[in-house]
């Protein structure tokens, strides 16, 4: 059962919701403390985040660098706009591949939900085509990771054939 919902809204938004079995304070901290972020915000299997800057204050800098350990990599930079501990984060971010994508404005809220948390992440892109480009960029990244995983599988299991 997937607890994740992901949908587009209007022309410029992407909205993600997810429930967690931990209180809002813990989920908020996992989004703002680098040593925690580096454990989970990795995307497809096989990627790591060797550089993680997250200055959790208004105007604070964000920088995430990912690598697949095989020469592939990209990074995201951003700035915090607003923080309400432990319920709301607003930041802007852009991907560098290496050209910077247009700014993605992201609002993340953490609401108590029973003993857990309902997280809602709302992304706002400048326009429909930029949203399409952002999603396609993500897909390139996802496909790239799949190929890397496939290669790893193929090279590490020589006796599997047949």
């Amino acid at each position: 059962m997937s607890k994740l919902t992901l949908k587009t809204e209007g022309d410029r938004h992407v909205v993600v919701t997810r429930r967690f079995a931990a209180p809002p304070e813990a989920v908020y901290r996992a989004h703002t403390e680098p040593e925690l972020i580096q454990k989970w915000m990795l995307g497809p299997e096989g990627w790591t985040m060797p550089v993680c800057v997250n200055e959790a204050r208004p105007g604070g800098k964000i920088r995430y660098e990912w690598t697949n350990g095989a020469g592939g990599g990209f990074y995201v930079t951003g700035e915090y706009v607003e923080l309400v501990p432990f319920s709301r984060l607003v930041h802007v971010e852009r991907m560098h591949m290496p050209d910077a994508t247009p700014d993605n404005h992201v609002e993340t809220t953490f609401a108590p939900d029973g003993t857990g948390t309902l997280m809602t992440m709302r992304m706002t892109l400048p326009d429909a085509a930029t949203r399409a480009a952002m999603l396609s960029t993500n897909m390139e990244h996802g496909m790239e990771a799949s190929y890397v995983r496939l290669e790893t599988t193929l090279t590490s299991s020589p006796a599997i054939n047949g």
Binding site: L4, A22, P23, A30, K39, M41, N138, M139
Partner: peptide, 27 residues
């Protein structure tokens, strides 16, 4: 866009599956 969304969904599901573990270990 629908196909692109499904790829983003997989990446996010992998992320949040790991986050569940991080949260379980935090508390």
């Amino acid at each position: 866009i629908d196909q692109w969304l499904s790829v983003l969904r997989r990446a996010l599901e992998a992320n949040y599956g790991r986050l569940d573990q991080v949260l379980a270990n935090m508390n």
